[in-house]
């Protein structure tokens, strides 16, 4: 299932969180060879994890991490502005309607549908919070994967070459994109909404009598 968890609440999902940070080390350091910090518990974290970001996490049936990504609003510190500004003429992207997506990660043994479910999770955030765009920097090999998932970014900047080539992309919300990704992922809008509501309210807490009052 998909979970939407702020960093401050990760302690409630400890095995899930630990395996997420381990899988990030495995993906970004071991497999992609990025220059990221891995601690002695083999967990990868950076300074943005300390800014209370919102994670979208696929939780496997056994409670472990299947894949995840991380979101922060572009009104605060984000990698696109701090680390990759050269990909956008050195100018900042900043709007409460644009969030940055980083650390898109799949565990080594992730089942086929996890990437699609995560993509739908991103669109679920956009739909519910009226986010117009995501911005993100990614390895060029992701371009084909995003296309296959039904949610391709516009690439507005690239740098490096070969293995080190990275791109700055922008994704735009539309209901059509949401429906397309849901169909490709094989997940109904109802199912996706339920997961979202379970994490971010609306499903578990009974509405108090006084709130249900009609005008």
């Amino acid at each position: 299932m998909l979970r939407y968890v702020y960093a401050q609440d990760l302690a409630q999902f400890e095995p899930l969180a630990r395996s997420m940070f381990r899988d990030r080390a495995d993906q970004f350091k071991t497999r992609l060879g990025w220059d990221v910090q891995v601690d002695r518990n083999s967990e990868e974290r950076d300074s943005y994890d300390a800014l209370n970001p919102l994670y979208v996490i696929w939780e496997n049936a056994d409670g472990s991490h299947g894949g995840s990504m991380r979101f922060l609003p572009s009104t605060g510190p984000i990698m696109v502005n701090d680390v990759f500004a050269d990909l956008n003429d050195g100018k900042r992207i900043s709007s409460p309607l644009i969030w940055e997506c980083t650390r898109f990660c799949l565990s080594r043994g992730a089942q086929g549908g996890v990437a699609g479910a995560l993509t739908l999770g991103g669109l679920e955030l956009m739909r519910n919070f009226n986010i117009a765009h995501f911005a993100g920097v990614f390895d060029r090999r992701m371009v084909r994967i995003y296309r296959a998932l039904g949610f391709s970014p516009d690439i507005i900047g690239t740098k490096g070459s070969g293995r080190d080539r990275v791109c700055l992309g922008l994704w735009e919300y539309s209901r059509a994109a949401y429906d397309r990704v849901a169909k490709l992922a094989g997940i109904s809008a109802e199912q996706s909404t339920l997961w979202f509501d379970l994490s971010l309210g609306g499903a578990q807490a009974p509405v108090p009598q006084a709130m249900a009052l009609t005008a």
């Binding site: 702020y6 919102l54 519910n128 009226n130 971010l200 309210g201 709130m211």
Partner: peptide, 9 residues
């Protein structure tokens, strides 16, 4: 947090 919140949630 940083997402807009409908009180019903």
């Amino acid at each position: 947090r940083f997402h807009p919140v409908d009180w019903r949630r």
